[in-house]
């Protein structure tokens, strides 16, 4: 049987204890990475992205029904005015579907939707809805000190929209005191 080791002095014992505590404390700190700050940052970025994407034109759906044409323009898109969408199937004003677009729209919308027959350019229902929106916008413009004499519209049209249909929409809006249009296009060099 090996002889029992003699206990060290109290000063040695305390020195060794302090040394061991320091060593363990250091080990403990290196056991994990504090990523809370990075996570906070990520949360802020996420909220910012969701907020900015919801409010920007990037949220405009690009699908087979509505594909905007490309342009060489690189200026920032205007966000002023009511959004008027002309897809392959519908004309939409302020998120409200107004009239259907026929399969062959080279003569515009169907005659029953127009004020004076097939050759007229004025789309009755679109005109009514645009008039309501225009009245609300006029009140807002008066209240905010802007020029109330006319409103603006952002035209988001499919790249295959026939010129006749485009002109019918622009003409109808023009008849309801919309005096400036912003034709929305995708930035990028055309092929």
């Amino acid at each position: 049987m090996p002889p029992r080791q003699k206990a060290a002095s109290m000063s040695t014992y305390k020195r060794m204890l302090r040394k061991e505590i320091r060593k363990r404390a250091g080990d403990h700190e290196a056991n994990f990475l504090n990523i809370t700050a990075m996570m906070d940052m990520m949360t802020i970025i996420l909220v910012f992205l969701l907020k900015s994407m919801a409010a920007s034109s990037a949220s405009i759906p690009q699908s087979a029904d509505l594909t905007m044409p490309k342009s060489i323009l690189t200026t920032e898109a205007s966000q002023e005015g009511v959004a008027v969408l002309i897809s392959k199937t519908h004309i939409v004003l302020d998120d409200q579907a107004i009239v259907d677009v026929p399969q062959d729209a080279s003569h515009g919308v169907e005659a029953k939707f127009k004020r004076g027959g097939p050759n007229d350019l004025y789309i009755t229902k679109l005109g009514q809805v645009a008039k309501d929106w225009r009245e609300r916008d006029r009140q807002i413009r008066l209240a905010t000190g802007k020029d109330p004499s006319g409103s603006e519209a952002i035209i988001i049209a499919d790249k295959d929209t026939p010129y006749r249909l485009l002109v019918e929409v622009l003409f109808t809006l023009g008849q309801t005191e919309f005096n400036k249009y912003h034709l929305m296009v995708l930035q990028g060099v055309k092929k």
């Binding site: 994407m53 405009i60 005096n179 990028g188």
Partner: peptide, 15 residues
């Protein structure tokens, strides 16, 4: 999943 599209607008007047 989000594809960012950059848009521009061409200003014009009623026909």
């Amino acid at each position: 999943t989000v594809t960012t599209t950059f848009t521009a607008t061409i200003d014009t007047l009623p026909p």
